[in-house]
Computed example of a mutant assay.
Amino acid sequence: MTAGFVLKPKDTIKLKETFLKIKKVFESRNIEVLIDSVSAKAIGLLGVEFNDMCEAADFLVALGGDGTLISLARRSYKFNKPILGINAGNLGFLTDINPDNIEEFIDKFLKGEYRIDERMVIEVEYKDKKLYAFNDIVISKEVISSMIHIRVDTNESYLNTYYGDGLIVSTPTGSTAYNLSAGGPVVYPLTEGFVLTPICPHSLTQRPLILPSNFVLEIEVKENFAKLVIDGQEIYNLDEKIKVKKALNPAKLIHRVERNYFDVLRKKLHWGDGK
């Protein structure tokens, strides 16, 4: 069995000791460890090119936080490999394995005592590219003093023209990210659907909307100063219509059997603090 590691870019040097400890645990259980060349170079090790690593690995490991896992899920999408998130910071919505508990988890993992959650992924057709988003895509203005018109059509009919600072199209997983900050709903992550949330709309009648995952959305911005942001990590100039749909394959996340999403919500969002 082979595991492919990616480390949080901003903390790669700090994570060297943690990675080496985890590597030792994996190898003691006959799991070969590969590390992508960028992460490896930062900590003075030899690594493997990212695509080669994804091809060779049976599963991938994100060592860092939710952002590291989101990036890995998007970049490795075409390889369709399950991803384990090891949390190197505060409790995340996605990374729930603590480095201190990795031995216990890996022993259970090798016995088949784990679960794989399948999360919906967004596919965006833009020009001649296919882009993938694990959390969300955001159509936003570039000029602070101006607002933009965003027309949305579905495969059934014209939907709406949003006028304001932008529009978030989120997966259920991404509902607790920018969508939540913009006033959108929290959606259970194993459901499927698009969450459309306007950003600072000019009219208060423009409200968040949840659409079925089998809808295909066509989104067009009338102005020529808009940006398309993928998972908050990739930015494109948006100068023509995009098509948005559910990607063919889901992202597959490896979790502890005991993991409870509502426990995470209560801890992260401080639900029930007044109980």
Rank of each mutant, 00 (worst) to 15 (best):
S28M: 14
S28A: 07
S28H: 12
S28L: 06
I31E: 05
E32I: 07
V33K: 14
V33A: 11
I35V: 13
I35H: 06
I35P: 13
I35R: 03
D36W: 01
D36M: 02
D36C: 02
D36Y: 03
V38Q: 14
S39A: 00
S39T: 11
A40N: 09
A40T: 04
K41T: 09
K41A: 13
K41E: 14
A42T: 03
A42P: 02
I43S: 06
I43K: 09
I43C: 06
G44N: 12
L45R: 11
L45T: 02
L46V: 07
L46T: 07
L46D: 09
L46E: 15
E49M: 03
E49C: 03
F50P: 03
F50S: 13
M53L: 15
M53P: 08
M53V: 04
M53N: 05
E55D: 11
E55A: 09
E55V: 05
A56R: 15
A57E: 10
A57H: 05
A57Q: 10
D58H: 13
F59D: 10
L60E: 06
V61N: 03
A62K: 06
L63K: 09
L63C: 07
L63I: 04
G64D: 04
D66I: 11
G67V: 10
G67P: 15
T68A: 00
T68V: 00
T68K: 01
L69M: 12
L69H: 04
I70V: 15
I70P: 01
I70N: 06
S71C: 03
S71D: 12
L72T: 00
L72P: 02
A73S: 14
A73C: 14
R74Y: 02
S76T: 08
K78I: 10
K78E: 13
K78G: 00
K78Q: 12
